[in-house]
Design a protein around this nucleic acid. Structure first.
Lengths: 334, 334
DNA sequence: CATCAGGCTGTAAACGTTTACACCGGCTGG
DNA sequence: CCAGCCGGTGTAAACGTTTACAGCCTGATG
């Protein structure tokens, strides 16, 4: 391994000068600087990050903690984060907290000392984190986490408003029996979408019917099963709001299989507006979320906190959603 | 920040004993060890990774370099890698090499000194990497990269065999005008699938017709456009092989829009077998790839090289694919 | 001419670990 | 009773950086 000492020796300067030439350039004479840089280049010198971080107590990396990774949702989030991080000269240390695996706290511990800040996405996160696992004042941005009293920035998708808009739209089309296939149990996004559903029902003067709210877990299979269950209730729904597009597509499959026409017999709406939504048959009405923007903003907030930790006050942002009407809800052709 | 000195002082032992108590436990008396650990716990001590890596010249992280992140393909790969890495006590430093962004070499440089090994996925990778950007002997596993003469392990999906099996199947159903919607230009996966397509044609006694090979880029929109183009050729195809499922779904959309029935008028096959494939209408015949296994195996190979660098010889593995026949190709109902 | 400023460079001390080496008892075996 | 071993512990040196401090030289100012 070639160290800065080797560079200094080869360039016939001291290590101090070498170090300065490489990144505090204004303190060193022009010729010396160029000479050192040439030598460093020739020797393929790369500074040892560990040693540097020992001195500066900074790593130029951020940690990204996600729940189990699946679907294009996460790759979009990661893309947004990574893009912003690269722009700021940071690296992303990624870790997923799987259900069976090590706990959130263990994951946090293992990241301590490796990262300057953290983006934590944990829709099932219950709240009391920073107390134990993190140095107080450690920069953290919460992504789609349930609100908590911890003093951290947070960014979330407007789940409530999006779901509400969808259900309001369905009600506006004259539906009175509107069902929901819910997201995963204990999931914050799922809970918020459910809340939006109920609120929209009330606002439309409709009563919440427990038999029209079936459980799900965001998978296509759950949408399939959910739709089948809904077809069996005594006074079946004329519209179904699936808490994400995957389940909506599963539901489409089940309805087709049962001989129901969409949207003529029954309307369907999803959530997320994944790219595929407009290509299924019928094209899926959904709630559009700019997922990579979610990642970008989270990273952006984190870097803001990192670069200027002065006068930082906790912010809670919400990423807006927009209703995208296509054929599956029957309002008009798109 | 609480250091090992603090722990040592609080436990009334030397730093050496403290250090040993924490991970070379057999060298220290039972009581001392427990005492030190209790203190470390109470103080929330976490070792400074930089300092440790300075001594051991090891980081316990691996770098993961991916092309632009999109679709569920990548989140699956990452999932597989991360899972294996966590099992081995490693972290993943993730970076994507975007088209407009910094070059592959820059990305490699920025990872130097931060990671013990590297997983590089770059279907457009041209070959001459290790020479300059990496210390020689640095453990690298290549994922879906074009074969090169660099002395690195590599793992790839059996693109050629999968595509060949698909096209052979279509030919076996009696189709003689079989088209392909190709993957991205310059992409190795795409090229291999194309090669499988041509080989299968030849094996079936069919002639390659250039007008039946339209370009694409793995996106739904490209599948849409590709299918429309294919409908316009003078003697249109009776079967289409789309180089991935996204394009196949785009093609389904276009065909439906043009009033063609699938599979009665025209058969369709995809590649990847994404979860959604079985839920579209008609259910999509595809080539199944266990994507997360790809990541797992890559990580596995890397750790094998890291833990025991002795007697390591370059290996090239191929992840098998299986043809999944569903309704879209018309052979039978599933 | 003496002094001083300021640009440039070098010396050496830190940062938090791990570990080679030395040390110190107490026990065993001759 | 002594030599030697061994389990348990401490001291201090390394790892590769950054940076405070000091020093040197040149040129300008009094």
């Amino acid at each position: 391994m070639v160290t800065i000492r080797d560079v200094a020796r080869a360039a016939r300067v001291s290590v101090a000068t070498a170090s300065r030439a490489l990144h505090k350039s204004h303190l060193v004479a022009h010729d010396t600087r160029e000479a050192v840089r040439a030598v460093a280049d020739r020797l393929h010198y790369t500074p040892h990050r560990g040693a540097r971080s020992l001195i500066t107590s900074t790593t130029h990396s951020i940690g990204v903690l996600l729940p189990d990774l699946y679907g294009e949702f996460f790759s979009e989030v990661i893309r947004g984060i990574d893009q912003t991080a690269q722009g700021a000269g940071y690296h992303c240390l990624l870790s997923s907290v799987r259900h069976g695996g090590p706990t959130l706290e263990a994951a946090l511990r293992s990241m301590r000392g490796r990262v300057d800040g953290l983006i934590l996405m944990s829709p099932e996160f219950t709240g009391d984190l920073s107390k134990r696992a993190l140095p107080s004042g450690f920069p953290v941005v919460l992504l789609n986490c349930p609100p908590s009293d911890t003093p951290h920035d947070s960014i979330a998708v407007a789940n409530f408003e999006g779901a509400r808009a969808m259900v309001r739209h369905l009600a506006g089309l004259g539906h009175t029996r509107i069902a929901i296939i819910q997201g995963a149990e204990g999931n914050f996004d799922a809970a918020e979408r459910m809340r939006g559903y109920r609120t929209a029902l009330t606002e439309a003067g409709l009563r919440f019917a427990p038999e029209l709210a079936v459980p799900g877990d965001f998978s296509e299979a759950a949408g399939d099963a959910g739709a089948r269950a809904l077809l069996r209730v005594v006074d079946p729904p004329t519209a179904i709001f699936a808490a994400n597009d995957g389940m909506a597509i599963g539901a489409l499959y089940a309805l087709r299989d049962a001989g129901r026409r969409v949207p003529e017999d029954i309307a369907i709406g999803g959530f997320d507006d994944i790219p595929m939504a407009r290509y299924v048959e019928p094209a899926l009405t959904s709630v559009h979320v700019d997922i990579s923007a979610l990642g970008e903003q989270a990273a952006g907030r984190l870097f803001a906190a990192l670069e200027g930790p002065l006068e930082h006050h906790v912010s809670r942002a919400t990423l807006p959603t927009t209703l995208v009407v296509r054929r599956s809800c029957g309002s008009r052709r798109t």
